[in-house]
Design a protein around this nucleic acid. Structure first.
Lengths: 150, 150
DNA sequence: TTGAATAATTAAGCAGGCTTATATATTAAG
DNA sequence: CTTAATATATAAGCCTGCTTAATTATTCAA
């Protein structure tokens, strides 16, 4: 059970909020530029981050986004049409579909992430080598712990 | 000009992507629960983060969101009705309005940020004291640099 | 073998968010 | 003092994204 002594300090929380805020602002603009909805791009990122070789099902995407399967299906129509995802039949269960990113979709996702972190890439040029190492180290630790959580 | 030697490594970038990804997923659900649109809540966060005592103008909000002033005005109607923001006349220019968060709005924003970072709060319970200090230190450094950028 | 359950799709309708056009009030410039 | 520019608000219309309901195909359970 988490107690105050094991949680981050208020200043760290504020810093975290700033990080998210800056990233989301960039992300918001990118999403609008791409003519995608938030639900769509969040779905794409789910596909990207979980990286399942077998793709993801329509109902799984719906669960993650909190929308109906009908909404997912309609959204996927647009993404397939744009060449960002593909729908395949699930060989183990022909009722089900396997949704995965295309190479084009991966490229777009990677671009969205570059845009999203552009502010911190710029900020990194203003850091000393030690400061940069410190931040790198903390990020690696976080990533390791995130991977352990999943 | 940034060269490769001053940018973060690929693993740090990946970690950063994971951080944003986890936070956005929580945020997305919170936003839908609150019955707000993404544009609205991003606008609210702008108001919160810049913390201007004099509030923010309609056209400034529109610039930041990339939408027309008409859209901002209509969006604000709903937020005012929900008690999350207030519109005041700008005493220095009666054409202009000063938009600011209400206490209620601040509370909601703070809650959204708690939700957003809930995953890292949970993760922090799995860190040693040294690991936690390391991450805190990196966050503080980032925050300091962000503040210097702005 | 039959009926129930599941996965996905499609159509219709609704609600919300945006834009454009117009109007009003105010400030700035000449 | 007059005209131009600016800031905001409102109305109308369009588009998008969602839900519900119905349907089809497939798998599961009895």
């Amino acid at each position: 059970m988490s107690s105050d002594s094991t949680s981050f300090s208020e200043s760290s929380r504020r810093a975290f909020g700033q990080i998210i805020h800056l990233s989301m602002r960039n992300f918001w603009h990118f999403t609008r530029e791409q003519g995608l909805s938030m639900a769509q791009i969040i779905a794409l990122r789910q596909l990207y981050h979980q990286g399942e070789a077998g793709g993801c099902s329509v109902s799984h995407i719906g669960e993650r986004l909190g929308v109906t399967n009908a909404a997912v299906s309609q959204s996927l129509d647009k993404l397939v049409h744009q060449g960002l995802v593909e729908r395949k039949e699930n060989p183990h269960d022909r009722r089900s579909k396997q949704i995965s990113l295309t190479l084009e979709g991966e490229k777009m996702l990677k671009k969205s992430m570059r845009v999203q972190r552009s502010w911190i890439d710029e900020l990194s040029t203003k850091l000393s080598v030690e400061e940069q190492a410190q931040i790198e180290s903390a990020f690696r630790l976080l990533s390791q712990k995130i991977n352990e959580m999943e």
